[in-house]
Write a protein that binds this DNA or RNA. Structure first.
Lengths: 240, 240, 240, 240
DNA sequence: GATGAATGAGATTTCATTCAT
DNA sequence: AATGAATGAAATCTCATTCAT
């Protein structure tokens, strides 16, 4: 079997795993059910992926790749536009990504949780096992996991320079904030876009999404340099 | 054993479960380790909680209760203030809640995921087992899980009426948006809040939080009724 | 269940394991078959012994204990005799031990192999796994594994002092040599004493054993201090 | 591939197997690791050896062959010497064999165990599987496994006849006894012979080996016909 | 001859849950 | 009320062996 055939089978297994993981969750997923999904044996899955965790990481890697591919497509589309337009294009792309591939969104968020837990307690084998850390796909992800950040930040800087983005704050902070808005929106958006009842607490998701988009635009346009005047100070609200 | 003694022991068990769940995750937590945490036997845990899932729900219920308690405290503090101030007080309280009780935040988010998955595929026993659905604590949560929403929405309406909140959009949508900002911020904020010099991608968390607060204020102050003019239309950015 | 009941069950499991291990060997033995041997479940075996290796060590520990008990009985019997008689009593006891408990003999020899492999290549997890090293019984064995040596050497010294043992060489070397004779005899003695055909290569085992005994006596009586004269030098026989 | 090429590859595989078996033991050795050892595929190993057990037997056969080769070399060297010298030469050769090829020694001993278990319980498939019994190498070994015995016994008889060996006991018994001494010595000698300053329980191995040699000489020289007089009777030492 | 993908039986181990005491 | 021994279903993972190419 040449390497092309090998990667075909690998992709099949990753697709099967994606389906099973997204349906029943990682813990409840069994290697047996993943194998049966494409009519192969358990052993074959292990032939391609040394452990369940590694297979999970392979799916996560695909999630990253899919997001990056969509980013690059979006940038190609706006290659002659100004920075603001490129950034908005990417934000819009991220929204599309979370709608089309909601499970990929979950994988990406979970990856961050893993990384965080590991950074805080590297001594504990709590949530990130030694086996996972040494796996091929985990290492492949580490090579690219900062790309989404660096790509957007670069465009934000361009937009600040060409004047299309008025917000002169630290571009990383702007990125984090816009990202947070989308992450929060996606996390709370319980309605499945495929279902007809596209409302959340009776609010049409379409309307909400438009408003979220308005907020995102507002962040890029924001010319205020400080919070003087209208903003209520936080400490005044707390009793601690 | 009178009911007071019973509830004391119950609380101990819930605390132990909270500690274990938050440390190793639900799947890796064992009833044994939870019992040992407070020096009792596995059987006793089962005497108070009929299953591991029920115990998990009991911890989730505590998370809801803790949040609500903090909400009521905040409202008591601002009981004579205008709607905007009350709402900002609650948002600030939610931020404090996620910082002090990050695992409670995770529980609340996870509860939403469970509810959503169940709403979409009620026939599948995927993520919400029959046993869990019938558990006492799950039913108790269902009685209160909309309170955070209704409380804030009520205050938002008051603010819109008394003129302190300029944004005249659907208050539920405003609530969802503000909540999304906090949820996104909390989800991405990987830094350990206990350390004073926490940063995320080299941005001081303190600065980021201030900016998030600025955005939240902006949402309440937003007087725009539509996106005419400056806002880029989404459909222009997409190739789909 | 009180500790007495616990240890009763433990002993039952160890006995079952001894039977299964000695019949099919460690590798082919399954926890299931050991459990079934006494009509309990696999899980119960794991309740008492954390792993198969640990259970193996528990059987090995029993082998050591059995040998030591027989040693102490033998010494009690000869408590007023001279050193030579005590040593011969112990040697005889060791022979009896290997005949009655041939599998215990194998366990003891295998334990030595494990220890040796570990001493030589402590970095490799080759034959002694981390799990085994940390097991309770392995550590218990380490506390007593030198007792057979120290007991005999002490008596040898007494015999050298009281004149009953003529051999004035290093008592440890005398012990090693006598032990080697018995170990070699036992290793080669393929005929099961229970079987009627008590011969090896047509030599009656009874006769051979008598002769081995003669050799052992000879070692203790040996008054020669060097090999001058009759003994052929080794180097003259080798071509290397 | 002609038969010469075939046997070259066979030898390579046996060498690889020897290395892997001796390092991690039969049970832990995998066909894959043996194949990789010489950069071939698992399938190729199966082309030459029909099973793992057969390959193990092939290594055991090599162990027998190596021992016999060394025996013949030794006898060639002493072809004009008297019986005692030939026998001592062979014993010395056996000592060299166990030092140079300790794993071969283990293989030989293990082979005896297999044969014995099979002789005692031929109905049980306990330790010697049907597949092994029918393998080529197992049958090849059976053709030669008595040669070491017959060779030495023949020379012992010669020595008894020419007067160089004083011990007039059954030559097989003398052989067994001398062999037992060497086997016991080798089994207990845990030290690594490569290191010059090897000790066992603080006894220099060199000294112990000299003494063992002294004992072996003593056995051949032993003129006593019975144990009258000095030897303690065994039955007097036992309480059974 | 050689490869290595594929299989699947089988082993160890975990743990939620039950229940006799 | 509390204990903890006992259960057994279920899951991961291993690897000897086969066989199409």
């Amino acid at each position: 079997m040449n390497s092309s055939k090998r990667s075909v089978k690998e992709r099949q297994i990753i697709s099967a795993a994606e389906k099973v993981f997204s349906t029943v969750g990682f813990a409840s997923a069994t290697m047996e059910s993943i194998a049966k999904e494409i009519g192969i044996s358990k052993g074959t899955v292990y032939f391609y992926f040394s452990s369940k965790e590694n297979l999970y990481m392979a799916v996560t890697y695909r999630a990253f790749q899919t997001l990056l591919d969509m980013y690059y497509d979006s940038m190609e589309l706006n290659k002659r536009a100004d920075g603001k337009r490129v950034v908005l294009g990417i934000l819009n792309t991220y929204l599309e990504f979370t709608e089309k591939h909601h499970y990929y969104f979950e994988l990406l968020m979970n990856y961050m949780t893993i990384i965080r837990a590991n950074a805080e307690r590297p001594h504990k084998s709590d949530r990130l096992s030694e086996a996972m850390r040494n796996g091929l796909y985990f290492r492949k992800i580490q090579d690219i996991h900062n790309l989404p950040l660096t790509i957007v930040v670069k465009e934000l800087k361009k937009g600040q320079k060409d004047g299309s983005i008025k917000n002169q704050r630290n571009p990383i902070m702007i990125y984090l904030t816009a990202w947070a808005v989308v992450v929060g929106y996606t996390s709370l958006n319980v309605s499945n876009s495929k279902s007809g009842r596209a409302t959340i607490f009776k609010v049409p998701v379409k309307d909400w999404k438009s408003y979220i988009w308005h907020v995102l635009n507002g962040i890029l346009l924001d010319e205020s340099q400080n919070d003087s005047g209208k903003v209520v100070e936080m400490k005044k609200l707390s009793s601690n």
